[in-house]
Design a protein around this nucleic acid. Structure first.
Lengths: 216, 216
DNA sequence: GTCTATAGATGGATAGAC
DNA sequence: GTCTATCCATCTATAGAC
């Protein structure tokens, strides 16, 4: 900003921070949280070792910042789609469209050609490997999921609420199982029959399965 | 064995090994694989620090031995139930009974009053946090799952095989999502409506949901 | 076989030069 | 703000006494 003739390197600090952020997210998503050291991150980002502590405070703080940003983005997209479904159906969308708002964002972001593929794997991993702080945030912040639960209860007022909650739990299990390793395993099991790359096809399969389960 | 008057301490070595095994399984299941040190394990078991390396070779070898034994036990029980379902239906059991053989063992073993509750959490954790060796074993050893896939294909010959494999994948996702943290989250979301302790009720809910999804 | 002491390696965090 | 050098804690694994 001080030199209008060279605006490209005005954000050198921000660039370093972003490089650390992206390298960390990538390595964490691929190799797990505990298996990646600060040294790995700074080497991958091409910055010095002290950058993580300078820009983020600590390794755990960096981890938590990635987690918070990505989950916020995902929840926002889900809320947006749910809102659109509401608009289309006068505030009472059918089960299938509610589930689509729940399934589509992580599925599409996680498709092989998406630049958010890494982010989705990071989020999925944080659910099982996260720090105490992250798990606490996941457990306590259910406001995002509550909107989906309410929508499903409104769509199926004939079902006991308890039943709706459990079925939402089953649907989340379907989503969380979409990890690299599980796709690979399924690929081996089916002798190459299942193609992970067909994102929209998989979304339709998930919706068919879950919708039928909900209408039982 | 050398002193017939004191047969109780004849298996002192085996007792130490078993104590290490149980303490390790318990700590790994509760706190994650990377967050538990050999020191934690030996302290919990009340044995000396060198026991792990003496009896198992290394920390990773101990981890892998727990993993192998528990998954073998689980797969054996599943195979047994599938076999019984085959006997009941002349080799062609319906979808619901196949899925029951897949769901019931981990669910019952994981119930709050079960002495295998820890083992189930260990197995679930190994799926996402396991070492490269464990993940390789999971990916390559699909023979156990292949029997379930074949049974489901036989039960629904009208469906494309690809569809059956994907739906089996969804069912496995439902099973793997039965972790402590996820139950807690659901409990918060439903304001205490969902009761994890009702194992048979949960099994029925899972079967209702998955069977309907399969018959779609 | 059991245990203590320690080697050997790695990690997170930080002080201080520039 | 950036980077190097380093501190200090922690871990796995093992040698060697008993």
């Amino acid at each position: 900003m001080t030199d209008p003739a060279a605006p490209i390197e005005e954000t050198n600090e921000a660039a370093t921070k972003a490089a650390v952020f992206c390298a960390a997210e990538r390595l964490f998503a691929l190799h797990g949280f505990q298996n990646v050291s600060v040294r790995d991150i700074t080497a991958e980002a091409g910055v010095n070792l002290a950058s993580v502590n300078y820009h983020f405070g600590s390794k755990d703080a960096l981890l938590f910042e990635i987690f918070r940003r990505r989950t916020a983005e995902l929840n926002r997209e889900r809320a947006r789609m749910l809102h659109e479904a509401n608009d289309r159906h006068a505030g009472k969308p059918p089960v299938r469209e509610i589930l689509e708002a729940l399934f589509a964002p992580p599925l599409r972001w996680g498709s092989v050609n998406s630049d958010r593929r890494i982010s989705v794997q990071f989020i999925i991993r944080s659910r099982s490997e996260g720090t105490e702080e992250m798990r606490e945030a996941l457990t306590s912040d259910v406001s995002h999921l509550a909107r989906f639960a309410d929508a499903l209860i409104a769509a199926r007022p004939d079902l006991p609420r308890e039943t709706v909650y459990w079925r939402l739990h089953f649907c989340l299990g379907m989503v969380h199982n979409n990890r690299f390793a599980e796709f690979d395993r399924l690929h081996v099991l089916s002798a190459g029959l299942t193609r992970e790359s067909d994102t929209e096809g998989l979304l339709k399969r998930m919706l068919d399965f879950a919708e039928a389960g909900f209408l039982a």
